[in-house]
Protein backbone atom coordinates (compact mmCIF):
# COMPACT_ATOMS: atom_id res chain seq x y z
CA UNK A 1 0.00 0.00 0.00
CA UNK A 2 2.72 2.43 0.98
CA UNK A 3 4.63 1.63 -2.15
CA UNK A 4 1.66 2.35 -4.34
CA UNK A 5 1.16 5.67 -2.65
CA UNK A 6 4.76 6.55 -3.29
CA UNK A 7 4.52 5.60 -6.94
CA UNK A 8 1.35 7.63 -7.25
CA UNK A 9 2.98 10.60 -5.60
CA UNK A 10 5.87 10.43 -8.04
CA UNK A 11 3.48 10.25 -10.95
CA UNK A 12 1.65 13.26 -9.66
CA UNK A 13 4.82 15.24 -9.18
CA UNK A 14 5.88 14.25 -12.68
CA UNK A 15 2.56 15.38 -14.05
CA UNK A 16 2.74 18.68 -12.24
CA UNK A 17 6.21 19.30 -13.62
CA UNK A 18 5.10 18.81 -17.21
CA UNK A 19 2.11 20.98 -16.43
CA UNK A 20 4.32 23.81 -15.38
CA UNK A 21 5.59 24.08 -18.96
CA UNK A 22 4.23 27.03 -20.86
CA UNK A 23 3.64 29.23 -17.85
CA UNK A 24 5.63 32.11 -16.49
CA UNK A 25 8.46 31.20 -14.17
CA UNK A 26 8.64 32.93 -10.84
CA UNK A 27 10.61 36.10 -11.19
CA UNK A 28 13.19 36.41 -8.46
CA UNK A 29 13.09 39.62 -6.45
CA UNK A 30 16.22 41.73 -7.04
CA UNK A 31 17.80 40.84 -3.72
CA UNK A 32 17.55 37.13 -4.43
CA UNK A 33 18.96 37.26 -7.93
CA UNK A 34 22.41 35.67 -7.97
CA UNK A 35 21.90 33.88 -4.70
CA UNK A 36 23.35 30.35 -4.61
CA UNK A 37 22.32 27.67 -2.16
CA UNK A 38 25.16 25.31 -1.35
CA UNK A 39 24.11 22.11 0.30
CA UNK A 40 26.38 19.18 -0.46
CA UNK A 41 27.29 18.43 3.14
CA UNK A 42 25.60 20.95 5.43
CA UNK A 43 22.25 19.35 5.96
CA UNK A 44 23.62 15.86 6.40
CA UNK A 45 25.79 17.15 9.23
CA UNK A 46 22.95 19.02 10.89
CA UNK A 47 23.68 22.51 9.63
CA UNK A 48 21.23 24.57 7.56
CA UNK A 49 22.20 24.94 3.87
CA UNK A 50 24.60 27.74 3.00
CA UNK A 51 23.24 30.75 1.12
CA UNK A 52 25.81 32.71 -0.81
CA UNK A 53 24.81 36.07 -2.28
CA UNK A 54 26.63 37.39 -5.30
CA UNK A 55 25.46 40.96 -4.82
CA UNK A 56 27.22 41.24 -1.45
CA UNK A 57 30.47 40.00 -2.86
CA UNK A 58 30.66 41.33 -6.40
CA UNK A 59 30.68 44.91 -5.18
CA UNK A 60 34.07 44.19 -3.58
CA UNK A 61 35.60 41.51 -5.78
CA UNK A 62 35.73 40.60 -9.45
CA UNK A 63 34.33 37.30 -10.67
CA UNK A 64 37.82 36.29 -11.66
CA UNK A 65 39.18 36.65 -8.14
CA UNK A 66 36.74 34.11 -6.75
CA UNK A 67 36.19 31.88 -9.71
CA UNK A 68 39.85 31.59 -10.71
CA UNK A 69 42.11 32.52 -7.79
CA UNK A 70 39.97 31.22 -4.95
CA UNK A 71 38.78 28.37 -7.15
CA UNK A 72 34.98 28.36 -6.97
CA UNK A 73 33.19 26.47 -9.74
CA UNK A 74 30.68 28.12 -12.05
CA UNK A 75 27.61 26.10 -11.07
CA UNK A 76 25.83 25.69 -7.77
CA UNK A 77 27.38 23.00 -5.61
CA UNK A 78 30.15 22.21 -8.11
CA UNK A 79 33.03 23.17 -5.83
CA UNK A 80 32.20 20.61 -3.15
CA UNK A 81 33.40 22.95 -0.41
CA UNK A 82 34.10 21.17 2.90
CA UNK A 83 34.07 22.75 6.31
CA UNK A 84 37.66 21.54 6.65
CA UNK A 85 38.67 23.52 3.54
CA UNK A 86 37.20 26.67 5.02
CA UNK A 87 38.94 26.09 8.34
CA UNK A 88 42.27 25.66 6.55
CA UNK A 89 41.79 29.04 4.92
CA UNK A 90 40.61 28.09 1.47
CA UNK A 91 37.35 28.86 -0.37
CA UNK A 92 35.12 30.95 1.90
CA UNK A 93 37.86 30.78 4.53
CA UNK A 94 40.20 32.69 2.20
CA UNK A 95 38.47 35.84 3.41
CA UNK A 96 36.14 34.65 6.15
CA UNK A 97 38.88 33.78 8.61
CA UNK A 98 38.45 36.40 11.31
CA UNK A 99 41.76 38.02 10.34
CA UNK A 100 41.40 39.49 6.88
CA UNK A 101 40.18 43.02 7.19
CA UNK A 102 37.69 44.72 5.03
CA UNK A 103 36.79 48.36 5.52
CA UNK A 104 39.00 48.19 8.61
CA UNK A 105 36.81 45.47 10.09
CA UNK A 106 37.80 41.84 10.39
CA UNK A 107 35.69 39.64 8.14
CA UNK A 108 33.85 37.11 10.28
CA UNK A 109 35.30 33.61 10.55
CA UNK A 110 33.77 30.63 8.75
CA UNK A 111 33.27 27.02 9.88
CA UNK A 112 34.75 25.63 13.09
CA UNK A 113 35.00 22.31 14.82
CA UNK A 114 34.21 23.66 18.24
CA UNK A 115 32.03 26.63 18.85
CA UNK A 116 29.79 28.17 21.47
CA UNK A 117 26.07 28.72 21.25
CA UNK A 118 26.81 32.38 20.92
CA UNK A 119 29.14 31.83 17.98
CA UNK A 120 26.52 29.65 16.36
CA UNK A 121 23.90 32.35 16.64
CA UNK A 122 26.07 35.23 15.59
CA UNK A 123 28.36 33.63 13.05
CA UNK A 124 27.38 30.25 11.68
CA UNK A 125 23.88 31.36 10.77
CA UNK A 126 25.22 34.22 8.67
CA UNK A 127 26.15 31.62 6.06
CA UNK A 128 24.20 28.56 7.21
CA UNK A 129 20.95 30.46 6.86
CA UNK A 130 18.14 29.20 9.08
CA UNK A 131 15.55 31.60 7.78
CA UNK A 132 15.38 34.43 5.31
CA UNK A 133 16.19 37.66 7.06
CA UNK A 134 14.49 40.86 6.04
CA UNK A 135 17.63 42.58 7.24
CA UNK A 136 19.49 41.45 4.14
CA UNK A 137 16.66 42.72 2.00
CA UNK A 138 16.87 46.16 3.58
CA UNK A 139 20.65 46.14 3.21
CA UNK A 140 20.23 45.35 -0.44
CA UNK A 141 17.90 48.23 -1.14
CA UNK A 142 20.10 50.62 0.78
CA UNK A 143 23.05 49.49 -1.29
CA UNK A 144 21.20 49.55 -4.62
CA UNK A 145 19.71 52.98 -4.02
CA UNK A 146 22.68 54.97 -5.26
CA UNK A 147 23.66 52.75 -8.17
CA UNK A 148 22.56 53.02 -11.80
CA UNK A 149 19.29 51.17 -12.31
CA UNK A 150 18.51 48.30 -14.59
CA UNK A 151 15.20 46.56 -15.16
CA UNK A 152 16.22 42.96 -14.65
CA UNK A 153 18.27 40.77 -12.37
CA UNK A 154 19.52 42.70 -9.37
CA UNK A 155 17.98 45.85 -10.79
CA UNK A 156 21.50 47.25 -10.82
CA UNK A 157 23.52 48.11 -13.89
CA UNK A 158 26.73 46.55 -12.63
CA UNK A 159 28.66 47.35 -15.75
CA UNK A 160 27.95 51.07 -15.38
CA UNK A 161 28.46 51.01 -11.63
CA UNK A 162 31.95 49.68 -12.19
CA UNK A 163 32.92 51.88 -15.12
CA UNK A 164 31.71 54.99 -13.32
CA UNK A 165 33.73 54.00 -10.28
CA UNK A 166 30.73 53.70 -7.97
CA UNK A 167 31.97 50.27 -7.00
CA UNK A 168 35.60 49.26 -7.19
CA UNK A 169 35.81 45.48 -7.21
CA UNK A 170 39.37 44.35 -6.57
CA UNK A 171 41.00 41.74 -8.75
CA UNK A 172 43.95 40.76 -6.57
CA UNK A 173 44.10 39.33 -3.09
CA UNK A 174 47.41 39.44 -1.26
CA UNK A 175 48.83 35.96 -0.73
CA UNK A 176 46.23 34.32 -2.95
CA UNK A 177 46.43 35.96 -6.34
CA UNK A 178 49.50 36.04 -8.52
CA UNK A 179 50.98 39.44 -9.16
CA UNK A 180 50.39 39.93 -12.83
CA UNK A 181 51.02 42.34 -15.62
CA UNK A 182 48.18 44.60 -16.64
CA UNK A 183 45.47 42.86 -18.59
CA UNK A 184 45.84 43.08 -22.37
CA UNK A 185 42.46 43.63 -23.87
CA UNK A 186 41.05 41.75 -26.84
CA UNK A 187 39.05 43.51 -29.52
CA UNK A 188 35.25 43.73 -29.33
CA UNK A 189 33.19 42.18 -32.09
CA UNK A 190 29.66 41.78 -33.40
CA UNK A 191 27.88 38.46 -33.66
CA UNK A 192 25.21 38.11 -36.30
CA UNK A 193 22.00 36.59 -35.07
CA UNK A 194 20.63 34.13 -37.51
CA UNK A 195 17.15 35.57 -37.63
CA UNK A 196 16.87 38.26 -40.24
CA UNK A 197 16.20 41.65 -38.74
CA UNK A 198 17.07 40.57 -35.20
CA UNK A 199 19.59 43.15 -34.01
CA UNK A 200 23.21 42.01 -33.98
CA UNK A 201 24.96 41.24 -30.72
CA UNK A 202 27.87 43.40 -29.73
CA UNK A 203 30.21 41.40 -27.55
CA UNK A 204 32.64 43.52 -25.64
CA UNK A 205 35.83 41.73 -24.62
CA UNK A 206 36.82 44.92 -22.85
CA UNK A 207 33.78 45.12 -20.60
CA UNK A 208 33.93 41.42 -19.84
CA UNK A 209 37.61 41.11 -19.01
CA UNK A 210 37.26 43.72 -16.28
CA UNK A 211 35.20 41.17 -14.39
CA UNK A 212 36.27 37.86 -15.81
CA UNK A 213 39.88 37.99 -16.97
CA UNK A 214 40.43 35.50 -19.80
CA UNK A 215 40.62 32.08 -18.21
CA UNK A 216 37.06 32.07 -16.95
CA UNK A 217 35.70 32.09 -20.49
CA UNK A 218 38.48 30.44 -22.52
CA UNK A 219 38.35 27.57 -23.12
CA UNK A 220 35.93 26.46 -20.40
CA UNK A 221 32.90 28.26 -21.85
CA UNK A 222 34.07 29.41 -25.28
CA UNK A 223 36.44 26.96 -26.89
CA UNK A 224 36.03 28.26 -30.45
CA UNK A 225 39.43 29.49 -31.53
CA UNK A 226 37.93 31.58 -34.30
CA UNK A 227 35.04 33.75 -33.52
CA UNK A 228 31.84 32.77 -35.28
CA UNK A 229 33.20 29.28 -35.97
CA UNK A 230 31.30 27.57 -33.15
CA UNK A 231 27.59 27.83 -33.72
CA UNK A 232 25.60 28.65 -30.69
CA UNK A 233 21.91 29.33 -30.81
CA UNK A 234 19.70 31.34 -28.54
CA UNK A 235 18.03 28.15 -27.41
CA UNK A 236 21.34 26.86 -26.09
CA UNK A 237 21.86 30.12 -24.27
CA UNK A 238 18.43 29.81 -22.69
CA UNK A 239 19.46 26.34 -21.56
CA UNK A 240 22.36 27.87 -19.67
CA UNK A 241 25.22 27.25 -22.08
CA UNK A 242 27.74 29.75 -23.47
CA UNK A 243 26.71 33.29 -22.52
CA UNK A 244 23.95 31.68 -20.45
CA UNK A 245 26.48 30.34 -17.95
CA UNK A 246 26.66 33.79 -16.40
CA UNK A 247 23.74 35.65 -17.93
CA UNK A 248 20.61 34.49 -16.09
CA UNK A 249 22.22 33.41 -12.88
CA UNK A 250 24.55 36.25 -11.86
CA UNK A 251 25.08 38.74 -14.69
CA UNK A 252 21.94 40.40 -16.11
CA UNK A 253 19.40 37.80 -17.26
CA UNK A 254 18.50 36.88 -20.79
CA UNK A 255 15.05 38.37 -20.56
CA UNK A 256 16.84 41.64 -21.28
CA UNK A 257 17.03 40.84 -25.01
CA UNK A 258 18.00 44.34 -26.01
CA UNK A 259 21.07 44.55 -23.90
CA UNK A 260 22.77 41.95 -26.08
CA UNK A 261 20.87 42.45 -29.30
CA UNK A 262 21.88 46.06 -29.52
CA UNK A 263 23.13 46.87 -32.95
CA UNK A 264 20.29 47.90 -35.22
CA UNK A 265 20.33 46.21 -38.58
CA UNK A 266 20.63 48.59 -41.47
Amino acid sequence: MKKISCVLLFLLIGASITWAAGTKKRKLPPYEFGSVTINNYSQQSGMPPVVFDHWIHRQYYTCRLCHVDVGFGMSAGATKIRAADNIKGYFCGTCHNGRTTHNKKAVFDSCAKEYSREAYNSRCVKCHEIEKSTLKEDQFFKFAQNLPKERFGNGINWEKAESEGLIKPIDQLEGVSINKAKLKIQPDFALKSKVEGMPEIIFSHKKHTVWNGCELCHPEIFMGIKRGATKYTMIELFEGKYCGVCHDKVAFPQSDCQRCHTKAVQ
Binding site: G22, K24, I235, Q254, S255, D256
Partner: peptide
Protein backbone atom coordinates in the same frame (compact mmCIF):
# COMPACT_ATOMS: atom_id res chain seq x y z
CA UNK B 1 4.73 43.43 -25.15
CA UNK B 2 8.44 42.63 -25.31
CA UNK B 3 10.00 39.39 -26.53
CA UNK B 4 10.74 38.35 -22.97
CA UNK B 5 7.08 38.38 -21.95
CA UNK B 6 6.77 35.13 -23.93
CA UNK B 7 10.30 33.89 -24.61
CA UNK B 8 11.69 31.65 -23.35
CA UNK B 9 9.45 30.86 -20.36
CA UNK B 10 6.21 30.29 -22.24
CA UNK B 11 7.28 29.59 -25.81
CA UNK B 12 10.45 28.28 -27.37
CA UNK B 13 11.92 30.62 -29.97
CA UNK B 14 12.19 27.72 -32.37
CA UNK B 15 9.16 27.13 -34.56
CA UNK B 16 7.51 23.88 -33.44
CA UNK B 17 10.02 23.89 -30.56
CA UNK B 18 7.38 24.31 -27.86
CA UNK B 19 6.52 20.95 -26.38
CA UNK B 20 3.04 19.77 -25.41
CA UNK B 21 1.48 22.84 -26.97
Amino acid sequence: MDCSNCHPDIFSIKKKGTEDF
